[in-house]
């Protein structure tokens, strides 16, 4: 379980994140939605430990408790795509085991034809697929993803969505993910949280959001999904 308690973050004198209380159960898939600058990335970075809050804390009570985090602009290391994936594997893994895991990820994320290409030479969408493949190559209990498919094309988006949903269901992974894609949010989520001005404006299941959006932004989000 993840407990968020009185979390506050300031930018100068401006309060940019204010979450008094939030509980995320094990295996939940939370989609963070909201306009640019609404606090999604700040929230995820604080949860990942990449940013110190000015007040409050995030408590991870299950073991293993440390979350894995994919930043918005993830980095494709300049070694080959194959070696990029190898980096994410535990050193003690056997050679065959490593090969199988890497081959599986290359196929799953449609990266086979890019296996020998340098990670730093990939397009934005390809880099995002590589970054996610690197993260999903071994089971994880908590994943924090910041717009993992923002640069992906339609095919890439579908691929990421399917891979992510399968991975979370298979491993019982708790997922907190920021997205601007209504389709992705409503397909993956067990709960959708709408952030506005750094505060939770709406929080509920995708069905609740579709049927009864409480805010103007929530209505627009659902309208986009319907289109």
């Amino acid at each position: 379980m993840i407990t968020v308690d009185s979390l506050k973050k300031y930018a100068g004198n401006r309060l940019i994140l204010n979450i008094p209380a939030l509980t995320i159960e094990k295996g939940e898939r939370i989609m963070l939605i909201g306009a640019n600058g609404s606090g999604k990335t700040t929230f995820l970075r604080i949860m990942a430990g990449a940013l110190e809050p000015d007040g409050g804390k995030v408590i991870y009570s299950d073991e293993p408790s440390k979350p894995y985090y994919l930043p918005q602009h993830s980095y494709g290391f300049s070694m080959s795509v194959y070696k990029n994936l190898q980096t994410a594997l535990p050193r003690e893994s056997g050679k065959d085991e490593k090969y199988k895991a890497i081959a599986g990820m290359l196929e799953l994320f449609d990266l086979e034809h890019l296996a020998k290409k340098r990670g730093s030479r990939l397009s934005g969408g390809e880099t995002q697929r590589l970054a996610l493949a690197r993260l999903l190559i071994t089971p994880k209990s908590i994943l924090l993803l910041d717009e993992p498919a923002s640069a992906a094309d339609i095919g890439g988006n579908d691929l990421i969505e399917t891979a992510l949903l399968d991975f979370c269901k298979k491993n019982g992974t708790t997922l907190v993910m920021a997205t601007h894609s209504p389709k992705q949010a409503l397909n993956i989520a067990t709960r959708v949280i709408l952030l506005q001005g750094g505060e939770i404006a709406e929080c509920g299941t995708p069905e609740e959001l579709i049927k009864r959006p409480q805010t103007e932004w929530g209505k627009r989000f659902i309208d986009h999904w319907r289109v």
Partner: peptide, 8 residues
């Protein structure tokens, strides 16, 4: 940030 996120 990427490497720490991967817990390397």
């Amino acid at each position: 940030e990427t490497a720490k996120g991967m817990r390397l």
